[in-house]
Simulated assay, not measured.
Amino acid sequence: MQPLNRLAIIGGGLAGISLAYEFSQRGVLCTVFEAESCGGAGASTMSRGIVRVYDPDPWLMRQALQGLRRWQQLNKGFPGLFVQCGCLYLLKAEQTTTAQAALMQLADAGYQAQWLNGPADIVRCQPLLANRALPADQCAIWEPEGGYVNTRLACQVLAQWARDQGAVILEGCSVTAIELQAQRVAVWALGQGALSFDALSFDALVLAGGARSTELLPDTDLFCRSIPLSLLQAGHQPALAQCLIDETCAAYLRPELGGWFFAGGADQIDVP
């Protein structure tokens, strides 16, 4: 494989900008193409942003632990990127055995997570669930180090840090076509006004364009899942203070400032 010197990244959301930041630190010249502004469109505009470690997939759990530590580190340089409010994970009954084994792995890795056995334990952790009829065998995992990322702010901060490392970030620049060649990747783009780019050549390309990815590579098996998301206000009721992921109904809640919270998650309905 040839050395990676020039990398094209399509999409200036959290995924694309994070890659630009990390690769730029390693001396790779990154060019990011973003049709709007960094963090100002797509999933990163309004993302659930929940950061937690437990996952039914052991490999993903290991990556999530590294990710959490990374957000904690980045937050020291720019407070507000990551809010550590804790995350409560309600388990499906069939996940109980694997979840207990995962908890032991987390303990071995030095990550604090607590097993909640039954509704009484869960309500003590999150009193707002007292009004919900939890099954007698309902179990959960409480992660006090969990929380959520301010995705828009993170995109803007990481974009500036990437620029400081030499990355080129083209905002308001929409990619019109890409061509995968034998040893290179060609990118055509259209900027604001009359600005346009002839084919730019790169060693490799990362497609982080979210829902637009299928437009640029229509002949692949790419699939972009849509997740319904609502922004609600608690009103006169107590506001949610922690992140909540409920696998029993594929839903989640994430707190926001001023008594607001995001709610979302549902089964995919537009594909077989």
Rank of each mutant, 00 (worst) to 15 (best):
S213P: 11
L158E: 11
A199T: 06
R184M: 01
Q156G: 09
G235S: 14
I245A: 08
G166R: 08
I169M: 07
G166W: 09
S196P: 01
A241Q: 14
T214Y: 01
T151S: 15
P218K: 11
A186F: 08
I227K: 00
L232H: 06
E215P: 00
E179P: 05
R152M: 05
A189Y: 07
G193Y: 13
A159N: 05
A234E: 05
A189M: 10
A234L: 04
Q156Y: 03
P144Y: 06
R212L: 07
S213G: 15
L216K: 04
L217H: 02
L207K: 01
W188C: 05
A162D: 11
T220K: 00
D203F: 06
S196F: 05
A162G: 09
P238F: 04
C224E: 02
V185S: 04
S201L: 14
D198T: 12
N150E: 15
I178M: 03
V168L: 14
D198G: 15
L190T: 13
Q233I: 06
L195R: 08
E179C: 05
E215Q: 06
E171I: 01
D164I: 02
S174Y: 05
G191I: 14
P228Y: 02
G191T: 10
C224T: 03
W161L: 14
L153N: 06
S196A: 05
L205M: 12
L217A: 10
R225E: 02
L207R: 01
L205A: 08
V168C: 11
V185P: 08
L207M: 05
V185L: 02
L232V: 10
S226V: 03
L207P: 03
V149E: 10
C155P: 13
E179M: 01
H236S: 13
Q165M: 04
G209D: 00
L180V: 04
L205S: 02
L229W: 11
A159R: 00
A186L: 15
S201Q: 14
Q183K: 08
L240C: 14
Q242D: 03
S213C: 13
L244N: 08
F223D: 00
G235D: 14
P218Q: 06
L222S: 00
D219R: 06
D203E: 06
Q183F: 03
Q242M: 09
